[in-house]
Amino acid sequence: MNIYVVVKPVPDPKTKLTYDPEQKTVIRAGLATVINPPDKNALETGLRLREQSGGRVTVFSLAPPSAGESLKETLAMGADEVYLVSDPVFAGSDTLITALILARAISAIGVPDLVLAGDRTTDSGTSHVPAQLGEWLGLPHLANACEIVLRDQKNLAVKTSLDEVFISYRVTLPAVVSVTRRINRPRLATLLEMVRSRSKPVTLLDAAALNLSPEQTGLNASPTKPGRLLPARPVVKEGTIMSGTVGEMAQEILNRLQSLGYGPKAGGGLG
């Protein structure tokens, strides 16, 4: 089975970003990047399908050239190959254009049986790209997948998680599916796989390779444009502040809950 996984390097969610009030931008220089966590769930899904039915798992990522190093982690997890889709003219692309660029890259290399992606990124978090990618490729697509089972060569059984229901579908391959975190627990990269990855290709695809002109990509081609960045409004509220021993603070909270009419269920001491 030929599987592509779309992956995005994002700033490490653990690092605090700082805001430059002069430039009105987020300071991104020197930040450690990691693989977007839900994309690891997508990669894990792909690796398990490959274990089940053979084939190949290829990673695609639209990212700056410096992201090449962090993408190697996908190889150390077991992916076979990486395509880094990168060009200065891609900068500023919104989700529609990002999806277009990825679709071009995927078509250029060859449409696989299945394209997987994490449902959203921890930085922009729109969750738009997978569906829009499916549209540009002309493939059926599903989001919010929490279970994927290969039914046969041509069909996937996918269970999706919505607000109040789970809906299951049969989707004919090739297709695009984005997965949620609950679908699996991604494996850790291993040293053994890292050493094996020395011979795995990492290929750069730029705008020329994809027959894309600057007018078709980047900020100018994007229907949505960013406006101003504003600091979140500070919340001004009157409140009581307290500190003390652990016992005092715990008691204070319980007292407040009780005064509001809430307390532990029967079996505890509070009413």
């Binding site: 190093e69 190697k72 982690e73 150390a76 850790l188 990269a189 291993t190 040293l191 890292m194």
Partner: peptide
């Protein structure tokens, strides 16, 4: 080196988990 950085990350992820 790049591989040593990856070794660090990988070992740290394993240790934490």
């Amino acid at each position: 080196t790049g591989e040593q950085e990856m070794t660090c990350k990988l070992a740290q992820d394993f240790a934490v988990e």
